[in-house]
Nucleic acid binder design. Sequence first.
DNA 1: GAAAAGAATTAACCGAGGTTTAGAAAACGT
DNA 2: ACGTTTTCTAAACCTCGGTTAATTCTTTTC
Lengths: 197, 197
Amino acid sequence: MDRLQQQNSFRTYFNTLGYDIDWSRLTLPMECHAIRKGDYLFQQGDFANRLYFLHTGLVRYVSVSDEGKEFTQTFAKGPRIIGSTKSMVTQAKVLFSIQALEDCVVSSYSWRDFYAQMRDDKAFLECYAHFLETIFIHKEERESAFVKHSAERRYLDFCADFPELKSTIPQQHIASYIGITPVALSRIRQRLKLSRS
Amino acid sequence: MDRLQQQNSFRTYFNTLGYDIDWSRLTLPMECHAIRKGDYLFQQGDFANRLYFLHTGLVRYVSVSDEGKEFTQTFAKGPRIIGSTKSMVTQAKVLFSIQALEDCVVSSYSWRDFYAQMRDDKAFLECYAHFLETIFIHKEERESAFVKHSAERRYLDFCADFPELKSTIPQQHIASYIGITPVALSRIRQRLKLSRS
DNA sequence: GAAAAGAATTAACCGAGGTTTAGAAAACGT
DNA sequence: ACGTTTTCTAAACCTCGGTTAATTCTTTTC
């Protein structure tokens, strides 16, 4: 996938969302990245104030707490926007890393420059607002799941939400997504297996 | 506070945020609500697809799980926008109630009509996107707190984040905000008291 | 100010999930 | 196919927070 193909893929993606965005304003050069399975697009603590677009592949957002525990915030499959909203918007260091779970093709723009060029386009602003609405609603559901549901329930919800990931990614990633240790997840799966028979 | 004062207070709020919004587009009538301490602006399960503006007062967003446990998602103090982004955007039933912790003055617009009239104003769209960014970043921090931090740490964070609420609202509300029972919070406070001396 | 209702504390008990360690099973590189 | 490394499972033990219930402390309310 060369630079021009990536640019087209990026723009086509927004069109398929139903927004008629005027790309003539955008004169920025797009940067291209090829990320190998297991490698990182950026790491916790970096300044990742870029807008990344994942063309193909699968990534996870993972952060490590002070005590050294991994927490997988999200999985994301291309094509879609990825990156740290907080770092883009506040120019702060990112609080998580993005790790490729499959080989990925990614391109990026500087968010500040991109936004400066696109903020005059109403269709873009609407699209951006819609994107924010979506990720907010998703986060809200996830927040309440941690408080309201047991780990077992969160595991079952994960299986329903990401049926294709259940068998393709290591269980420790699943465990860290639902906020428990791999040992605890193994126990839960054992319990489920028994009660199903 | 009469209708005209409320309208002015609403518009002034956006100006102080630094957005030069063209209110001439907005011809909708604003509805006014006076909510007494303890009462609800709307309840879980309602269709609350309105944009609410809390002029003065304090509210909490609270949801009750299937098993009957209360969870306080947020506290919000006027002046600011309140309501359910999800319900506004997806026309779904709200998943939480908004309860007044003090007497409140609130006004509201139908979100669909409001958005239809304002979506042509770039300043408004930027302001809306900025609002979404803010609440998203806040949710993201809260999500990771539930996974990474102990209940004790979450309590201390609450005290730092809402110093003025710590002594003015019932402890059970604090407990339900940090995702534990009132009994557990009492134990934690006891432990802190001892270790501080 | 007394009675009633609500909120906070304390104690005893329980269970889900964390921790550590050891061993089995899969995945991987050469 | 082989050994190496990573991942998963299993068991023993521990801790934090949930549950229940009794008791005290605060607010309301009349």
